[in-house]
Every structure is written in C-alpha cells, then in structure tokens.
C-alpha cells in the first residue's frame, strides 16, 4: 500500500515529505512506548503513535521507518516536523484513535512485519 492510500484510508493530512507519498509501506507497528518499538518492531516501515516528541522521529530513523502517523489529531511541534523533513520521514496526522487507525490498516491485510 502506498502512503497516499494510507492517508486516504485514515482521513489523514500530510505534514511533510509530500514527495514520498507514493512510497510503498507493507507493515506497521502501533505504540506509544519508544523502548517497546525498539525492542519489538521487526521490519515495520510505518509507526502509529500518540506520542509527540523528537524521539519518535529518532526512533523511526533508527529502524529505517518511512512514515509516522500521529493519532487523535495530535499535531507535532515545528521542531519535530523539521527533524522528520530533514530525514525524509513522512508525517501524517489523523483524528482517529490508535485503535481505529490500526484496525483500518489491519483490515486491509497489512502485516505486522513478520
């Protein structure tokens, strides 16, 4: 699935790196604890989170994730957005809760990186 299709499915807005919206993403990990993402994520390329701080972007960078979806309509700070932009990570924001956002993606057959 492309990030553009994910955006549509989650009624999301894009905050940076619009030029990468046609990148393919096949798996996702939903979590607010970055330590758990580092411990348990395998090859996921999409991070779904309600946490807003620069470490979310750095965690994604460490794991080569391409896109972060912020749930519950939480808009990251300009500092977070510019860090993601510098490193080519697409940021999306959706009003849906983490459960709903994850469920919509899971229902399409999206994997958990296994």
């Amino acid at each position: 699935m492309t990030i553009r299709e994910i955006m549509k499915l989650l009624d999301a807005q894009v905050l940076c790196c619009e030029d990468a919206l046609d990148s393919e993403v096949v798996d996702a990990f939903s979590c607010d604890m970055m330590s758990d993402v580092l411990a348990f994520a395998t090859n996921e390329s999409l991070l779904i989170t309600g946490l807003l701080n620069p470490q979310v972007v750095r965690t994604a960078m460490m794991l080569d994730m391409r896109c972060i979806v912020f749930v519950c309509g939480k808009i990251p700070t300009p500092e977070i957005i510019s860090l993601a932009r510098e490193n080519g990570i697409v940021l999306l924001v959706t009003d849906h809760y983490m459960f709903t956002a994850s469920g919509r993606l899971y229902a399409t057959g999206m994997l958990r990186g296994e």
Binding site: D32, M33, M34, S35, D36, A39, L51, N53, Q55, T59
Partner: peptide, 12 residues
Amino acid sequence: NMGFGAGMGLPN
C-alpha cells in the same frame, strides 16, 4: 511520558 523508562533499555 516521553516514551522511555519502560525498563527495556538495558535488555534492548
């Protein structure tokens, strides 16, 4: 609240 301190650092 910042997403760390879950006791996974050293094990990771």
